[in-house]
Structures are given as structure tokens and as C-alpha cells.
Design a protein around this nucleic acid. Structure first.
Length: 176
DNA sequence: CTTTGGATCGTCT
DNA sequence: GACGATCCAAAGG
């Protein structure tokens, strides 16, 4: 469970408040559904690594690889609650006026934290890495908000989106 | 407040 | 050659 874990990149850090699950070969909405390619190679590697992809000609999105090597299971990070390095985040995202706009979307959080395709494949658990996943002791919510995934056109019925209830930094496509 | 359309290019068919 | 796990500004109620 990644909810309420902390993602840190240098001075910048945020608590994960919204995620979506993607289940490799058994999930038509997953980038890995049609097998390995140069782009999604990281997903087929070991868990705990960062899968970053480029889309819409201008945006990056970040996933945490989860399953055993070869299964290509991953979790898309959809929103963070900023907790450190707010000034740097604002510099990286001039479009965000309010703090609430800094990380309330998968492409927004990548821009705010300076994550792009060059960060693809990083080990999030290794100490001293440029991008890391930390546990500060905050437990995941007892009853996460569950809803359907956003922005996909297939397998839209799968309720694989999870969020921290009541957190204002959750992205636009509101859970029902 | 909600809806609409433009931006922009790597990747796979 | 078509399209996408998106975002934002502008226009319309």
C-alpha cells in the first residue's frame, strides 16, 4: 500500500494521496498489455523501481513497479500532498498558483519534482538515490476512497483507483 | 461553475 | 500515420 508513503526528490517531497493500479498482461489499460517494448522495459524489471513515461507530447507520469519481475505490475502516482521544498516546486511549475495545484495530477507531480524520462528505472528504495520512497510512520488510511480509473478508454470499469479520503490535494477526476 | 479545444511528439502499428 | 494512464486557458451558463 503506497498511500501515505512519502516520495522525495532532493529538497522536494510529498505524501502520496492518490494512486491507480495497472496489472500488466491481464490489464488492457496497461502499457505492458501488449508485451515488453523499449519504453516499458522498466515495468518488467524488479519491484521498487520507478517507471516514467512521456505522453501527449508534453507530459511525464511516474509509476512504482510492484510485482515480481516479469509481471509488469505497477502503480501510477496520481497526486501528492506537498510537504517539503514548496519553493522549488513552484519554480518548476509556474502555472500552479495555489499549493493545491502543485501536485494534484500525475503529470503535475512529475513536473513539480523534476521527474522525467531520465529518471526512468531508478531504484526508489536504495539509500542515497536521487528519488526515494520513504515511510515516515504514517499508516495508510483504514478505508481508502475507491473508484474507477481516470483517462483510459478500456477496462474503465475496474475500481482500481485509491485515494486518501478528504485530502484536498487529490486530482480533478473526483472519486465518486 | 462547466465545457471545449489546442498544444505537441515519442511510440507502436 | 494515429493516438495517448494530461493540463490549461478560454469561452459559455
Amino acid at each position: 500500500m503506497l498511500l501515505n508513503k512519502v516520495l522525495r526528490a532532493g529538497e522536494r517531497a510529498g505524501r502520496i494521496v492518490e494512486v491507480e493500479a495497472y496489472a500488466g498482461a491481464s490489464d488492457p489499460a496497461s502499457h505492458a498489455f501488449r508485451g515488453p517494448t523499449p519504453r516499458n522495459a522498466t515495468m518488467f524489471g524488479p519491484a521498487g523501481h520507478l517507471y516514467v513515461y512521456f505522453t501527449y507530447g508534453m507530459h511525464h507520469c511516474a509509476n512504482v513497479v510492484c510485482g515480481a519481475p516479469g509481471t509488469a505490475e505497477a502503480v501510477l502516482l496520481r497526486a501528492l500532498h506537498p510537504i517539503d521544498g514548496l519553493d522549488e516546486m513552484h519554480l518548476a511549475r509556474p502555472a500552479a498558483v495555489r499549493a493545491i495545484d502543485l501536485c494534484s495530477g500525475p503529470a503535475k507531480l512529475c513536473e513539480a519534482l523534476g521527474i522525467d524520462r531520465s529518471s526512468d528505472g531508478l531504484d526508489l528504495c536504495g539509500p542515497g538515490g536521487p528519488v526515494r520512497l520513504l515511510d515516515d510512520g504514517t499508516p495508510p488510511p483504514d478505508e481508502p476512497l475507491v473508484s474507477t480509473r481516470v483517462g483510459i478508454r478500456v477496462a474503465t470499469e475496474r475500481p482500481w483507483r485509491f485515494a486518501v479520503p478528504g485530502d484536498p490535494h487529490v486530482s480533478r477526476g473526483r472519486p465518486s
